[in-house]
Amino acid sequence: MNHGKISIRYARALYEYALEHQEDKAVYADMQMLARTAAEVKGMTVFLANPAAGRQDKLNLLQEASGGKKTCATTRHFLEFVLDKNRESSMQMIALMYAKLYREKNHIRLGQVTSAAELPARTLDKISAFIRDNYHVSVEMSTRIDPAIIGGFILDIDDNRFDASISGQLQKLNNYAGH
């Protein structure tokens, strides 16, 4: 069975439903929260896949993971629908695929800048402007500080990485010299 098809079908249905009810943006926030929680909380997907766990417990967990009381009506309705269809084990992938679909439809790209020290706001604005001008899309920018990169920065735009860090340059030099 091709499990990869399940999540995209549910995500597409959710997007169209949310669009009709003009809640696509709110659902996007909920799904992002859900995907982030699933990645951070170890054991969440295992619990969801466990047939011995009760439906109500799973629903409570999914609602909490997607924002608790702040979740929109469409999200709450969708979570119950997924549980009825016994597809809760695919919920993390559905959330990820929804977020991806939403960004595609709204011409949004995810950007992340990793630097060794905190970057001034002015530099971040410049990077955002650079992406906006070159890709003609809006950017959801986030930052991360990782001293291990020594210096420079790493820019991730969706699935693409521009590595201008010192550690990356050293690694490339090392690979080139054949060590």
Binding site: R161, L173, Y176, A177
Partner: peptide, 21 residues
């Protein structure tokens, strides 16, 4: 090493990445 460095073009280009789920 110097010869190798001379030939090392510092090309910066986008790499495709993913995240382990």
């Amino acid at each position: 090493l110097k010869m190798q460095l001379d030939g090392f073009k510092q090309k910066l280009e986008f790499e495709e990445i993913g995240k382990v789920l």
